[in-house]
Simulated assay, not measured.
Amino acid sequence: MGISGFSLGSILSILLLCLAQFSLALKFDLPAVSGKNERCIRNFVFQDQLVMVTAIVSGSKGDGQLVNMHIKDALGNDHGRPKDVVGETRQTFTAPADTTFDVCFENELVSRRGAGSPYRSIELDVDIGADARDWSSIQSQEKLKPIETDLRRIEEMVQEIVSEMEYLRAREQKLRDTNESTNERVKFFAFGTMGMLIGLGAWQVVYLRAYFRSKHLI
């Protein structure tokens, strides 16, 4: 069956399923402790990409636990430090450069109430690029049809994939150049070492011949 055999809706569904990897969602439990107990989730982002971090934290304020959140990147920039997080919290930022960023949580035990080990359940969603944009608002402001909104979103996601492929290609080229340069240096080092060994061997032969001649052994 050719491409013409597929409906536009089927094509959109396939593309959306293939591009769903741009969002990261996970759920975990974070026990409350008196000391440091930070847990971080790391992701990569390209320059000028929009990032939306949504965290849903269980529990209630005053239950003896204090969950703090910290969003930071590898360049040393802070993108949010919500304190005493309960319920849904959303933070957005635009990446200043191609870098990794961490979303960190810590659960401080303020007071122990009841038996057992207290903990908070955290549900984290990280949307990057086109997934992080508010498409409902864009559709309303620009008066787009649903199909036009989906096409706009897919177009931006495809552009992000192309940009990522270009980044990977440039990185592969850089690594290949580094590898070739290293091979050249190793080759010259090997030739230099071989030449030094040959020269040292020749010098030892000449020295020993001169030594034995001086002793009238040859």
Rank of each mutant, 00 (worst) to 15 (best):
G35Q: 05
F101W: 01
D150K: 07
D150S: 01
F191T: 02
V186Q: 07
Q91K: 15
G80E: 09
D102K: 02
I11K: 14
M196G: 09
L16I: 07
C104F: 01
L50D: 06
E172P: 01
E180W: 11
G9I: 04
L66P: 01
K27L: 04
E108T: 12
V126I: 13
T193K: 04
E148V: 00
K27E: 05
D98Y: 07
I147D: 06
I41A: 03
I161A: 02
K27N: 14
F28C: 04
Q139I: 00
I14F: 13
W135G: 08
G129S: 11
D29L: 03
V186H: 02
M196T: 11
H79G: 14
Q159E: 03
D48I: 02
A190S: 00
K27S: 11
F46S: 15
L200F: 10
G59I: 09
V33H: 12
V45D: 03
L168F: 10
T182G: 04
V33T: 14
I56H: 06
S10W: 08
M69Q: 06
V126H: 01
L168W: 05
T149L: 01
F28R: 11
L24W: 09
T92H: 06
A210K: 12
Q65A: 11
I56T: 13
R42F: 03
S4D: 14
A95V: 08
S23T: 14
T99W: 02
F93T: 15
N68I: 06
H70Q: 13
H216L: 14
F93G: 15
K72Y: 05
L17H: 10
F191H: 05
F44E: 07
M69N: 03
A115N: 11
G195E: 10
R42G: 02
D125Q: 03
R171L: 14
T94V: 14
P82H: 13
M194L: 10
D48T: 12
Q21C: 12
Q173R: 13
K83C: 09
S117G: 06
N37L: 02
S140Q: 02
F105E: 02
E123N: 14
F93S: 14
S13A: 12
V162E: 12
P146A: 00
V186E: 04
G114P: 02
L109D: 07
P82E: 10
F22E: 14
F44R: 07
A20I: 06
L16N: 13
F44H: 12
K27M: 09
M1H: 12
P96L: 04
F93N: 11
V33L: 13
N77E: 05
V110D: 08
C40S: 08
R185A: 13
P31Q: 11
L19D: 03
A32R: 03
E164F: 09
G62M: 11
D63M: 08
S10K: 13
S111Q: 14
Y211K: 11
E88N: 09
V103S: 01
E160N: 07
V33F: 06
V86E: 15
S10P: 10
